[in-house]
């Protein structure tokens, strides 16, 4: 009898929070696609959790109460996200002006209100402090780890951005929500992302003109190997969404995959499109690696994002619908004007 009463009490207490939350609603994760980024709206701001893809247990959590006014970005993608929200004026430092496209940022850079950090590997603490940096967004490649720790102790909120590790292009684009929260433009970011999603889905469902799916290879020779996005990467997902038969589809992995050069040479007779060779002309490709001329697909159609390379690095992540539309055009309508891509002249 006594333990029954105890159980009842326990139940009563145990149920209490549940009923509470039912009434108020569980704080809902505002991210749909991303596997690494979680954002909840809380009473006085946003709760943000970022999963480190390398260490399942390493989660970066923080509560954002007030948006930041001075943000340092360490990658071109971050600059693109800021530009998409038209919040360039909140930037105080950018990675390397040689890779910069954003015209507004260039102006601010010339005025001196934004500084050029030049290299991610050698973060200048002095420069960052001089610019009264409040938040720093980094891509988490690894080498900057020690510096990040130091900057954190100096009161700068350092936020990792693992957008490049996502496996779905829309998940990548969704990271704009993080930038929305940081800059106090969350609704605008949501609006932007919704537009991108709709556009992406529309292009994906477009009927394909060409009946047979073209064989497509991506990547280039790096050192003694061919390096390309692996079968589970977001690039592979993009290719799948325009019904390309991607050469490395069967290769596991969400990042890059490698292949020996002779194996590419001998097994690529059916490839009809080469994407992202990393050069803007065939002569530049040959200058880089003279043996490219022996690859069967060297004589086929080659496309690269060299319409404006820096623009691509800034905007490809935030506008996957544009990338998809380009790929769809490459497939069915190669003479159309494209956002990023350009065909290499024969």
């Amino acid at each position: 009898m006594r333990w029954l009463a105890f159980l009842l009490i326990l139940l009563a207490f145990g149920c209490r929070p549940k009923s509470d939350s039912q009434r108020g609603g569980i704080p809902r994760n505002l991210c749909q696609y991303s596997k690494l980024l979680t954002i909840w709206r809380v009473e006085d701001g946003y709760a943000i959790e970022i999963q480190n893809p390398e260490h399942p247990k390493a989660r970066f959590k923080f509560l954002l109460k007030k948006s930041f006014k001075r943000i340092a970005a360490l990658s071109a993608t971050h600059v693109g996200m800021m530009a998409a929200l038209k919040q360039e004026h909140l930037l105080c430092a950018i990675p390397d002006k040689r890779y910069l496209h954003a015209p507004k940022v260039k102006k601010l850079l010339a005025k001196g209100s934004i500084i050029d950090l030049q290299s991610e590997q050698q973060l200048s603490v002095k420069k960052l402090l001089a610019k009264q940096t409040q938040a720093l967004i980094y891509s988490g490649f690894g080498p900057e780890k020690a510096q990040i720790k130091r900057l954190s102790t100096l009161g700068i909120t350092c936020i990792p951005n693992f957008e490049w590790r996502e496996t779905h292009p829309l998940a990548r684009a969704e990271w704009i929500l993080l930038f929305g929260a940081l800059t106090g433009q969350f609704e605008k970011a949501q609006l932007h992302f919704r537009k991108v999603c709709q556009n992406y889905m529309r292009i994906r469902k477009q009927p394909k003109l060409c009946n047979t799916n073209p064989n497509v290879i991506s990547g280039y020779i790096y050192g003694d190997q061919w390096i390309a996005p692996a079968g589970n990467s977001f690039e592979a997902k993009l290719y799948a969404d325009v019904a390309f038969a991607y050469y490395f589809n069967e290769r596991p992995g969400t990042g890059s995959c490698f292949s020996s050069i002779p194996s590419i040479l001998t097994k690529s007779a059916s490839v009809s499109i080469w994407l992202n060779p990393g050069q803007s002309s065939r002569s530049a490709l040959l200058a880089q690696y003279p043996k490219y001329k022996y690859f069967p697909f060297f004589e086929k159609r080659i496309f690269c994002y060299t319409h404006n390379t820096n623009f691509y690095w800034e905007w490809a992540a935030v506008r996957p619908d544009w990338v998809l539309s380009d790929l769809s055009n490459i497939r069915d309508n190669p003479t159309a004007d494209m956002h990023f891509y350009k065909e290499l002249k024969l």
Partner: peptide
């Protein structure tokens, strides 16, 4: 360094260039 090839031309390229 031998790789299975489809035809003579490719075998030639593979030999002389690689």
């Amino acid at each position: 360094t031998k790789v299975n090839v489809l035809n003579e031309v490719q075998a030639n390229i593979l030999w002389w260039e690689f």
